[in-house]
Design a binder for these strands. Sequence first.
DNA 1: AGTGACTCTGCAAATTTTTTTCATTACATT
DNA 2: AATGTAATGAAAAAAATTTGCAGAGTCACT
Lengths: 351, 351
Amino acid sequence: MYEKVTLKHIADDTGLSISTVSRALSQTGKISSENQKIVFESAHRLNYPLSTSQTPVDLRSSINIALVTRHYTGEFYASLFEGFDKSTEGTKITMNLTSVSHTDKPTIQIISDLKNSQYDAAVIFLPEFTAADYMELLEFIPANLPIVSIAPIANPVMDTVTFDNYRGGYLVASHFEERGFKNLGIIQGPIKHSEAMLRKSGFIDYIHASDNLNLVWQFNGDYSFLKGKEAYENFKHSDVKPDAIFCSNDGMTLGFMHSAIRDGVHIPCDVAVAGFDDLPTCELYTPTITSVHTPYDILGKKTLELIFNRLKQSSTVQHSGYTSLVPVSLSVRESSTDLSNVFRKYYQELP
Amino acid sequence: MYEKVTLKHIADDTGLSISTVSRALSQTGKISSENQKIVFESAHRLNYPLSTSQTPVDLRSSINIALVTRHYTGEFYASLFEGFDKSTEGTKITMNLTSVSHTDKPTIQIISDLKNSQYDAAVIFLPEFTAADYMELLEFIPANLPIVSIAPIANPVMDTVTFDNYRGGYLVASHFEERGFKNLGIIQGPIKHSEAMLRKSGFIDYIHASDNLNLVWQFNGDYSFLKGKEAYENFKHSDVKPDAIFCSNDGMTLGFMHSAIRDGVHIPCDVAVAGFDDLPTCELYTPTITSVHTPYDILGKKTLELIFNRLKQSSTVQHSGYTSLVPVSLSVRESSTDLSNVFRKYYQELP
DNA sequence: AGTGACTCTGCAAATTTTTTTCATTACATT
DNA sequence: AATGTAATGAAAAAAATTTGCAGAGTCACT
């Protein structure tokens, strides 16, 4: 059995009197800020039961933020988390990855419970959430738990920080034009995902605005590797073949290329390819893959700034629905540029 | 300002008397187990300040376990976390990924602090930790915070659950022999990592025990993609060339293959390759990559079992240094088997 | 140097919260 | 029906926390 921790313990620990400790913890004025800091530090160290957020933000030794997502396999989530983690560098913020995949509890319940598990705020990435889900979430979460979404929604009901998906698609089309491709194709993401539609729109809008480009092939994907392979089969049997294809995410890019290469299709000579997400694999694959680069560390930095400000104001939480877009860029690689003989030799002298 | 939550609130909430609530929370006998459960549930819901682990394990609504690692980029960590998360399915355990990378705090400090952040236990994966580090860690961590390591150590001072790395290397050599390869090579991992040495030993011991096999080439790596590329350069200029190479992890496998393919080397015809970790990429690469499969979900399940038992005993924590090995298998793919013309066509008709 | 306004602190009293004692009830066993 | 046991609430006791008050510094101004 643990002995109960009381003000007396903290008083002994800090050398102050019980009254001073009490005043420090209950924040009823008349206390020097140094001593207040000392008392909170001691209270935390001795494990005095303080309900969450009883400690003012600037006196905390650390701020805990949960990153809530659904799936985890693959590089995408590793990159996402790494970006957030990197952006906590030099701050007293601690990021934690929390799962909503392998559990019976409803997602909204999990997020609401964060408050009781010493979390100060939550970043949610749940692209499959509908407007109704968001509304329900807003109702249930504790009022003093700031939440920021990093998945775009058509009609944002809470603060959102997300990549400029529209511009990503736009950049790809522009790059294809620059490279001299004329007939373009797209493997789009799930229709219900807002960001998939934005990527598509950016791509198509550029094509329509240009005199040189035509959209000649389209395929509905779901972001999975296997759908990418399916897309290739569709492409293979299509009458009109695009010169260049924009895949809405790298998972499908990899699937498409995997099948294509096995079929003797040369990328980019036969068909050029560009993806979205710029996963580490893009640089490691053969050929290396052109992809829209999404700087997770900047996304993280922006998001944490937003949360930090929200925590400081503390008072009323407004889920204003303000969206902030993080710019993306294009990492141009071999899969969309003319190859300077890189693979000419490859497998040539085989029997 | 939040109103302070007292026993009275819980009494009103549950319909019980203050005395009963007090008895339930302080666990001084004479209380029915149903009511105790009800009281704890209510206390949690109303956010009554309970210092961590004041609630007995079987009455908790959830158990929080932290997975502490250093790096995060790449699929390896995503797979690791996914495995753990999967193994919490159907339990009331919640896993969280915690970083020790991007922070000024010393690692040991972070782990010690977990107790204060409502964590009930920790799983640590810190391959670079030395015996001295582990000893120091054991001294500093709170006595009632069970810790299990999932990185092998030569002389384990705390409970360890890890893959059978030795057997992994052994399996690869055995597979190479079966395939008819004679002269083998190895790109080994960092000498300071215990598991890297085990992988190497398993591989080499099999070779020595066999009459058909010779070890003709060796390279010291560090698990990075770039070292894999370096390894290829070394291989390229080496006089004796192995028929088949075991790369101690998939990062280096990818680096080696990347350079080799660009140099017109055919894998597996010119040189066969097998890796370790069986990352998702192994199946997506061209050619697909043979690799030692490490079942993270089973590792997770084993680890969580261990922790759960430890939490139930609660009393004295013994860091017994008991090691438990999770079996690995070999995922055989194209990079080490004779290719049935898969790439014959590829790039053949280029000018 | 003296004065007053101010802040911060500790002691002790006041108040609140929690624990314990004790009587009562319900229910099972003999 | 008598006895024993466990669980509970009311009230008393104990413990913990907050508050009133006085004193000690500090600082600006005379």
